[in-house]
Design a protein around this nucleic acid. Structure first.
Length: 526
RNA sequence: GGCCCAUUAGCUCAAUUGGAAGAGCAGGGGACUCUUAAUCCCUUGGUUGCAGGUUCGAGUCCUGCAUGGGUCACCA
């Protein structure tokens, strides 16, 4: 059970035992903090401005981040969630033995508290003249040393935990030494808060729908599969909230949204994590153009709240989030970008031929919709650096969207892009139960040859729709990707606290959890 | 899953064409009463990701594996 300790850890463990022998508890139950570092400094400034002779007496607590012992005095910094504050320990004040105890048995990374009167050092730094100090929690494993130097008012980090694998696997250590990483997740929380406020203010009701679903749907992805023992029933982790949220429109709610986790058993990349956070909303009596305007207003609102402005820099690009965003009609976009009018190519064969004529290799065995998707991915999306809505999509890759009047091959759907990355997806929702059933059957035929991708038909969803579903517009957006845009990160792992990595030292998966499991193989009986 | 790159001390990184594995920080010992990358002296620490191979000799070249990063595929 005990793990192998490094020599550095053994040294600290010995120090911990020494403390115990001296009657000092290295993990006491209580701390007596009166001020955060930030509050302490503010209190000092207040008393200084009032002309008081001595500064306020405070007890601060935090992690020991630097120590500079100089014989009979020691300077140190502790850091809490607000900021760092300097401690000044002097043999004259606390006695030689206490100072020696501090120098010898307290280490970088330990949580401690210190009590004393605030003053300014000769160099002007607000500092605690320590009268008493206490160990709050001894650190056994040393944090990677992160020394900061202040050069011309700028903080220069000299050694830093930079290895991405260690940073993701031990996010706690990453957060502990890299304050800018802590900031990312504060920003993320602000984004989510702003989205909620915006939707709440517009009369939307926040709801929670099942994560464990008997039938998965609403997107095209392979699911994670699990099993309920008592019900003796397979369950799927949702790949989308869509079909449940739209059931609620049948139930007479007009505006609903959910922010939560989706799970997709697909490849992992710089913009894909197996579980990711999604916002979806559904809005009765709205269509996709109304949703489009609402969406760009929503993002602008988030920018106002989170950044205080509507422009930002992402990977060197100046992004302007001010509405209205650029709008590109898909058919016209492809005419302009590749010189193919998809209207002239009503079948997959004709479109593939047109692509070959332009020197583009069409994906083998792809449907017309997939070929259009290929063209969009390769020739349109990468250029959508500024916020752009691409609208009017092919029907056969959009089985839940309503067809365009006058063109049964196309649907009223748009996607939003920033930085060349798909951010959101929306449509005028299909509410015709007979059409919906036909689409489901069509999808079933399309994938009949490939069991893996075939989705089970959600009969209950069709029943709900037969009760009558108001016309509505729906919208889905990846919160992780939005956070990437707002924090100027290129990898989704930078905005997820604990991203999924392959398990260490367990390279061989259990036999029953092999690649591409079928439902039958994957269920965990018992 | 394919291809490319990486893996050296706790952390960040060196190591000429194949020729004795190093530095800074952290750690240990010592000095030092206003330091802040404190400074100064001394010092511990390595099966170079793992397993093979080529060679008189491998951190360096070859093969396989592992993990990560990138990219492609996949992701209506």
């Amino acid at each position: 059970m005990p793990t192998e300790l490094t020599p550095l850890e053994k040294v600290r463990l010995e120090k911990l035992e020494h403390l115990r022998e001296m009657g000092i508890e290295p993990y006491p139950n209580r701390a007596e903090r009166t001020h955060t570092a930030e509050e302490a400094k503010a209190a000092f400034l207040t008393s200084e401005q009032a002309g008081e002779e001595t500064g306020p007496r405070v007890t601060v607590a935090g992690r020991l981040r630097s120590m500079r012992p100089m014989g009979k005095i020691t300077f140190a910094h502790i850091e809490d969630a607000t900021e760092r504050i300097q401690l000044f320990l002097r043999a004259n004040d606390i006695g030689k033995d206490r100072l020696k105890l501090f120098n010898k048995f307290f280490d970088l990374g330990d949580f401690i508290q210190a009590t004393g009167v605030l003053f300014r050092t000769h160099s002007g730094e607000i500092t605690v003249r320590v009268e008493d100090f206490k160990m709050l929690a001894k650190a056994i494993t040393p944090l990677p040393p992160a020394k900061d130097e202040v050069v011309d008012g700028k903080v220069v980090r000299h050694a830093v935990l930079a290895d991405p694998e260690t940073r993701y696997r031990q996010r706690y250590a990453d957060l502990a030494v890299n304050p800018e990483v802590r900031e990312i997740f504060r920003t993320r929380a602000k984004i989510v808060r702003a989205l909620r406020d915006f939707l709440d203010d517009h009369g939307f009701l926040e709801v929670e729908t099942p994560i464990l679903q008997p039938i998965y749907g609403g997107a095209a992805a392979r699911p994670f599969i699990t099993y309920h023992n008592q019900l003796k029933q397979k369950l799927y982790l949702r790949i989308s909230f869509e079909l449940y949220l739209k059931r609620l429109l049948v139930g007479m709610y007009e505006k609903v949204y959910e922010i939560g986790r989706d799970f997709r058993n697909e490849g992992i990349s710089f913009k894909h994590n197996p579980e990711f956070t999604q916002l979806e909303f559904y809005w009765a009596y709205a269509d996709y153009f109304k949703v489009m305007e609402f969406a760009e207003e929503m993002i602008a609102f988030v920018a106002d709240r989170v950044l205080g402005k509507r422009t930002l820099t992402w990977q060197g690009h100046e992004i302007d989030l001010n509405p209205p965003w650029r709008r590109v009609e898909l058919r016209q976009g492809l005419i302009d970008a590749v010189g193919i009018d998809i209207k002239d190519c009503p079948t997959a064969e004709e479109l593939a031929a047109a692509m070959k004529e332009k020197g583009i290799e069409p994906k083998p065995n792809a449907s017309r919709g997939k070929l259009i998707d290929q063209l969009v991915s390769d020739y349109l999306e990468p250029n959508f650096i500024q916020p752009t809505f691409l609208y009017n999509y092919p029907r056969d890759i959009s089985p839940l969207a309503k067809a365009m009047p006058g063109d049964p091959t196309m649907v009223e759907r748009f996607e939003g892009f920033i930085g060349g990355m798909e951010l959101c997806n929306a449509f005028t929702e299909l509410n015709d139960p007979l059409d919906q059933e036909a689409r489901f059957l069509e999808m079933g035929r399309t994938y009949a040859a490939d069991d893996e991708e075939r989705h089970p038909i959600d009969e209950d969803y069709l029943r709900a729709m037969r009760y009558g579903m108001p016309p509505n517009g729906g919208f889905g957006m990846g919160i992780d990707r939005l956070t990437m845009i707002f924090t100027d990160k290129r990898s989704i792992r930078e905005v997820i606290l604990f991203p999924h990595l392959r398990e260490r030292g367990n390279a061989k998966p259990p036999a029953e959890a092999g690649e591409n499991p079928t439902v039958e193989e994957k269920s965990n009986e018992g």
